[in-house]
Design a protein around this nucleic acid. Structure first.
Lengths: 229, 229
DNA sequence: GGGATATAAAATATCGATTTTTTATTGACT
DNA sequence: AGTCAATAAAAAATCGATATTTTATATCCC
């Protein structure tokens, strides 16, 4: 039996599972992370679990206080804005480089990722635009793949890594607003077209606009119900 | 006996020590981090050491491969440029907000930090501008305090945290170039004055210029001798 | 009754030993 | 000689038990 990179060690298994559950909100913001509870939940011992938690502390998804334990990092309006602002800066810079440097293989990946994303988005729109959990998972995966593909050719692993961590932090907020907006799809179409046309200026403007609109959407649909401080 | 936050747990102790040794280069880029060796070096057991390493993986100072262990993250031209570019973006954004929002207490902190930094820099210039290890430590601490103070009033913990991690990643490169340039001091003076004058536009331009010049300096003094890939 | 103090329970942090995996070494075979 | 396989050594990963610290509870005194 083969094991891929993500299940080679129990630490990695615990890390993936914890990260997933925090990002999708199964473990709620500010929730106390009790070690014994998590050990049985994920079927790992103390050592790998604590390692996974420590790594998530480094990624700002978990907070810890010496001798007092671990908590799921809280959500806040401040973080929502800051993370998406930084994401914008990073994606705009990287997209410029990617459009300049990308070859045919990159273009193909972008097309493939867009096709998959567009297909799911039309599906969701047909169904009435309410995202239940499996649809949200599917859409998030495709959305991540598309945005990741756009900047994949930027030539900077550093940018790609930072973007990935910012994206996950932003996803926690998206998951709260479960309504899918038609605009999102239209924005993806324009962004795709501008990128394939190698119109860097337009693609960057669209990226800025896209992320800003998503923040607005999150505030609109989820703002009143949450206790973000 | 009182213990401050940084020495409450062995994990924290190991984390600080490891981070310090990586940042200053005592543990060289790409060095294999053997667990037993580090355990005796820092006088901690396996568990806290591995936790510290996991956290550093999350901060991009250590890389790990399942079942194969840990290494000090390599240096590269790509990372040097990317990290400093991101730092610029973050510091410029945060500085704008800080200048807009900062009160008298902030202004005092900026003045104090600048005074301390300027005094050390003049000291170093008198001595011939070669930084040995203790001087470099002293200067780095003051430089960090000054740049941190500038943006402290920006109102965004998220920005401050990200800036801190980017700053440490950049410090690894600065530590290689041991010559202190007179320009650095002059740039700090201008940046300080523009900030106190609440001239946000000028302060941001100076920040961009300052960081770009530092990258140039690093490349000039250290570029030929290193094996960055 | 209220507040400080001692005690008990819960949870975290840590260690030392064991298991598993990787890496290095040796020796056989073509 | 060079490749492959088997074996030995090294290192990482994990577990289970213990020590330490924090938090909750109950008790006593004013």
């Amino acid at each position: 039996m083969e094991h891929d990179q993500s299940s080679r060690t129990l630490t990695e298994k615990a890390y993936r599972a914890l990260r997933h559950d925090i990002v999708i909100g199964a473990l709620q913001p500010r929730a106390k992370l009790k070690l014994d509870e998590l050990c049985s939940r994920y079927e790992v011992g103390h050592a790998p679990l604590r390692e996974a938690l420590a790594r998530l502390v480094g990624e700002f998804l978990v907070v810890s206080e010496g001798q007092r334990g671990f908590w799921v990092a809280p959500l806040s309006l401040e973080e929502l804005h800051s993370v998406n602002r930084l994401r914008t800066l990073v994606e705009v810079e990287a997209l410029q480089d990617s459009i300049r440097l990308g070859d045919e293989a990159w273009e193909r990946d972008v097309r493939d990722a867009f096709t998959a994303l567009a297909s799911i988005e039309q599906d969701i729109l047909h169904r009435g635009a309410i995202m239940d959990s499996p649809h949200a998972d599917e859409w998030e995966a495709c959305n991540e793949r598309f945005h990741s593909a756009l900047i994949a050719a930027c030539g900077s692993p550093t940018y790609l890594n930072i973007r990935a961590t910012l994206y996950r932090r932003a996803e926690r907020y998206r998951r709260v607003a479960r309504k899918f907006e038609r605009d999102v799809h239209e924005e993806h179409v324009s962004l795709f077209e501008a990128t394939i046309d190698r119109n860097a200026l337009r693609a960057c403007r669209l990226t800025e606009h896209h992320i800003a609109r998503r923040v607005d959407g999150i505030l609109r649909h989820a703002g009143e119900h949450t206790d973000w401080r």
